[in-house]
């Protein structure tokens, strides 16, 4: 009985975003403690943009003989964080029967595709996605704070655009 209650409270806690926030922070630090010998950079335990870049460029380099930039951390063997996120997300969605194929129009596909290109280019300009920005700020990097505040500014402008669009559609 008690075990069941514990299970239930654990199931509830994994649905709280703040729990995942703390988990990512601590796991990223653990990864650095385990693997900094691979060559850094520091505060690099988890980053969606950079790890996508590292994996992509490692594959491209292996097949074409090019030498696109890769962080020293993943220069010898590739990082598979993104693959892990895909598998984890798929298994979670499948177990809870939340996997649903959602199609869109050709135009929306093009929009998302170019959106993806733009977002990762902006992210790599800062050298971090929103997640690594948080890690870097936790590590004591003030540039990361400027990045986080700029994201907030961008989201504010985007929210105003969305509200404007929603109002016009309602009229």
């Amino acid at each position: 009985m008690e075990k069941e209650n514990q299970n239930k409270s654990f199931l509830r806690i994994i649905r709280i975003p703040a729990f995942l926030g703390i988990t990512i922070g601590i796991l990223a630090a653990l990864v650095q403690a385990l693997l900094i010998n691979a060559g850094g950079p520091e505060a690099y335990g988890f980053c969606v943009a950079c790890h996508t870049r590292d994996l992509t460029n490692a594959v491209v380099n292996a097949f074409t003989g090019a030498s696109l930039g890769i962080a020293p951390f993943s220069a010898t063997t590739p990082v598979l964080t993104i693959v892990g996120v895909l598998i984890g997300g798929y298994i979670a969605a499948n177990r809870k029967k939340e996997f649903r194929l959602k199609m869109g129009s050709i135009l929306s596909y093009a929009l998302y595709f170019f959106g993806g290109i733009a977002v990762i280019n902006f992210a790599l300009l800062v050298g971090a996605c929103p997640y690594r920005l948080a890690l870097r700020f936790g590590y004591g990097d003030l540039i990361a704070l400027i990045g986080i505040l700029s994201i907030a500014g961008g989201v504010a402008v985007g929210s105003i655009l969305l509200l404007f669009y929603m109002k016009r559609r309602d009229m």
Binding site: F122, L133, G147, V157
Partner: peptide, 15 residues
Amino acid sequence: AIIGGFGMGIIGVLL
């Protein structure tokens, strides 16, 4: 940092 953050924010929220 300002250009990158702002760009990520605005495109991210629209998508």
